[in-house]
Design a protein around this nucleic acid. Structure first.
Lengths: 188, 188
DNA sequence: TAGGCTTACCTAGAGGTCCTAGGCAAATCA
DNA sequence: TGATTTGCCTAGGACCTCTAGGTAAGCCTA
């Protein structure tokens, strides 16, 4: 009876890959067990249940994205940083659709606090240092930026923009221009 | 053997109510059958499968929201229309969380074309008549507005804004102010 | 109003996912 | 080397999805 060497971390990683391949909604305990050549029941020594697995996946994705964004904005400021942040965000969503979907899960407050979710807001704040914004405008701007990035990527992936010939890439660049000029002249 | 009077439309309506009560992901054929006091198998004369049910629900929600928005912006223009549109959108999401989740499903192009999805873009265009925008800026602006509304509501519902004391309502109003001034001075 | 047709709902059953309880063997440690 | 821990197993229950085939309710026509 050879052992597969399962751990919660290896399962979460594999679940993330599975999510990117077959979609987050198709990440099941059974499918994951199949991938390791192991019975379903064997996974329950490592994860509490299916929901726990999905939460771990969401936390993994949040951390990965935070790393990417941190690297992207390092040493940049102003519009440069804005574009780098936004591009890293969007690229991650495109390269890892399953992980990105996982990130949208509503996490309970404790889990969210332990996750990299806070780091996202913190980095957006760092980004805003290139603009002249102070509380509470800063928080409002963080929320607006995050909303726009997430909204755009989410609608793009759901096909909402396919009905019109205008290139999505062009609209994306224009949105970034618009956000930049908005931040530079934040209405009082 | 009394009949329950099932039709695809009545099932879809009930599924929408069920979604708002227990969450879109918990809308199952079994739960719906239970609600009508009928066996699971009986639903399959009216809907093709579970996915078909969810798509019908999404189409219903899109149509309902389109109606609400149309009513909200009727007779308004400029910022007035912008705020009315956005508020109707956000209120619908809050009052009907299950229906709103359903709307986010990726619809295949044919279904999307038959649905009210096009009406949404059309109404956003109508809204922009109060501002001085022409193609392709208009399409870019439609996409930006939709992204921001959807992103904000979606993040708000997933709890992403709860980590900070700043009131969500205040940030929302500021976002609308920002979008208004952005549209008035759309960068060339 | 009786016959036939259509259709709404049924039972039976196969296959999949989630999860618990309890068992045995592999790895680790004394 | 023997004892303990840990990893994966089998067995099995509960629920969801969906198909095939049957029966009875309601409608149409004569």
């Amino acid at each position: 009876m050879a052992r597969a060497g399962l751990t919660a971390d290896r399962l979460t990683q594999a679940a993330a890959d599975l999510a990117d391949e077959v979609g987050f909604e198709n990440v099941t305990v059974s499918a994951l067990a199949r991938r390791f050549g192991v019975k379903d029941a064997s996974l329950y020594s490592h994860i509490r249940n299916a929901q726990d697995l999905r939460v771990r996946l969401a936390v993994l994705a949040l951390a990965e994205l935070a790393d990417r964004v941190a690297e992207a904005i390092a040493g940049r400021s102003g519009k440069d940083a804005l574009v780098a942040f936004a591009s890293a965000y969007r690229r991650y969503a495109h390269e890892h659709p399953g992980r990105y979907s996982a990130m949208q899960m509503a996490l309970d407050p404790d889990t969210a606090a332990d996750s990299a979710a806070g780091k996202h807001a913190e980095m957006t704040r760092a980004l805003l240092r290139g603009y002249d914004l102070w509380e509470p405008d800063q928080t409002d701007a963080v929320r607006l930026l995050h909303s726009t990035f997430h909204g755009f990527v989410s609608l793009e992936r759901s096909g909402a923009f396919h009905s019109h010939p205008r290139g999505v890439e062009a609209s994306w660049l224009r949105a970034l221009d618009a956000l930049d000029s908005l931040l530079r002249a934040w209405p009082a």
